[in-house]
Amino acid sequence: MFRLVRDRQGAALAPQGSVVCIGAFDGVHCGHRALLNRVRERAARLGAAAVAVSFEPIPREYFARSSPVSRLDDVRGKIRQIAGLGLDMLMLLRFNAGMASMQAGEFVEQVLVQRLAAREVWVGADFRFGHNRQGDVAFLREMGGRHGFATEVFPEFTLGGQAVRSSVIREMLARGDFMGARHLLGRPFKIGGHVVRGRQLGRKLGYPTANIRLGRRTSPVNGILAVRVHGVAEHSMAAVASLGARPTVAGVEPLLEAHLFDFDGDLYGRRIDVEFVAKLRDEEKFDSLESMVEQIGRDAEQARALLAPSNPVFQPDFADDRGRVRSSGASA
């Protein structure tokens, strides 16, 4: 049974010992999954618990609080992805002032030794930890020699010669390369949430929208997009969406607004997932609501055409072996 643990102090969690991997795991992409699968396999061979150790907020998010950091997934998605890989435990530590000031040796002794009875610890080659990032692989191996665990370095994971990193995927999403990002993620990029009431402006303008607040999350995606919405019907529904601050109507908080084609119903309170398929354009400020509505009409028409069954390029699961769209003429 999968177990979620939030505290770094307390009784031993793995009396039989554990095989541990440590990382931010933002997006739980193909490289992360390869590492997590390796840990699960090693744990099964050793008769130990398979454990992932991660942090929320992720460290770079904590240290950049004055400037928003984009994320590939929220904490709920990270937990769901890791749990689905068959690990025994996710230790999701609260990254706060106490964690930021924790010495590297203290982390090893308190978390890896006392709490997890680690037998193997798997990290990336550039792994750094502890106050001022003082701990590295060499330090981890030195501590392992003292406490009886092995330190293993997982090599950088590549697909078709492309290094699979969260930063690379965020860059792909920012420039609208959703098929490339999907290839490295191993799944489509989505943002999910519960539909909330907005100002009802879209309905008044003839384009009612299902609205999702991003809360503290910063998305790597923005602009006007062709999307598919999951969670409304048995199949996904084509839609056109806006993700941003809505400058024409003096929006404040970033909002994801999706207008579902050929749908008229009440979605308030329902959880939906919005899958990004193609970027149509950047956000812009219009001189009037009339000119904005005219452009929305053009956006909706373009999104319909891209997502239509007659257009094979943007149908689900249609990609070449590099995960990119086959027809450059249909690129967003």
Rank of each mutant, 00 (worst) to 15 (best):
Y62A: 12
F63W: 12
M237S: 08
D264M: 03
F276D: 04
G198S: 10
L90D: 08
L4H: 13
A238L: 00
G223L: 05
Q134N: 02
I224C: 04
A49W: 04
R165T: 08
Q315F: 00
G161E: 10
I296Q: 02
L112A: 03
A308S: 15
E301S: 14
V53R: 07
A50M: 06
F2L: 06
R322Q: 11
I272M: 12
A181L: 02
S167P: 03
V51K: 10
G198W: 12
D299L: 00
D262L: 04
D126S: 12
A44Q: 10
D317I: 10
P208Y: 11
R76Q: 15
V313N: 07
G329V: 07
T151A: 13
G77M: 10
A300M: 06
F129T: 04
V274K: 05
E234H: 02
G130A: 05
V20G: 02
A48M: 08
E106I: 09
A104Y: 05
E171K: 05
C30L: 15
T158E: 15
D177N: 01
Q134R: 07
V39F: 02
A241E: 11
H230I: 14
L93R: 01
G192N: 11
P59T: 13
V227P: 02
G160A: 05
N37F: 00
K285F: 05
V20S: 10
E301I: 02
L201V: 15
D126V: 05
D321A: 12
S167V: 14
F261E: 13
T151Q: 03
F318Q: 13
L90I: 02
F129I: 09
M99T: 03
S18N: 06
V240K: 07
D88E: 12
G251N: 00
H183D: 09
S242A: 13
N211I: 13
P57F: 06
R141A: 14
A226P: 03
R94N: 15
F107M: 08
S18G: 07
G105E: 13
P59E: 09
E234N: 07
D317K: 00
K190R: 15
L307C: 06
V164L: 01
P316Y: 02
L185H: 09
E253H: 05
I191K: 08
R146Q: 14
S101R: 15
H147C: 11
L159D: 08
D321V: 11
M89W: 01
L173D: 06
A250V: 09
A305F: 07
R217Y: 00
T158R: 08
R175I: 04
C30T: 12
R3Q: 14
G145R: 03
D299G: 05
R324T: 05
R71C: 09
H29W: 07
D262S: 12
V75H: 10
A24S: 15
G215C: 13
A52Q: 05
S70G: 09
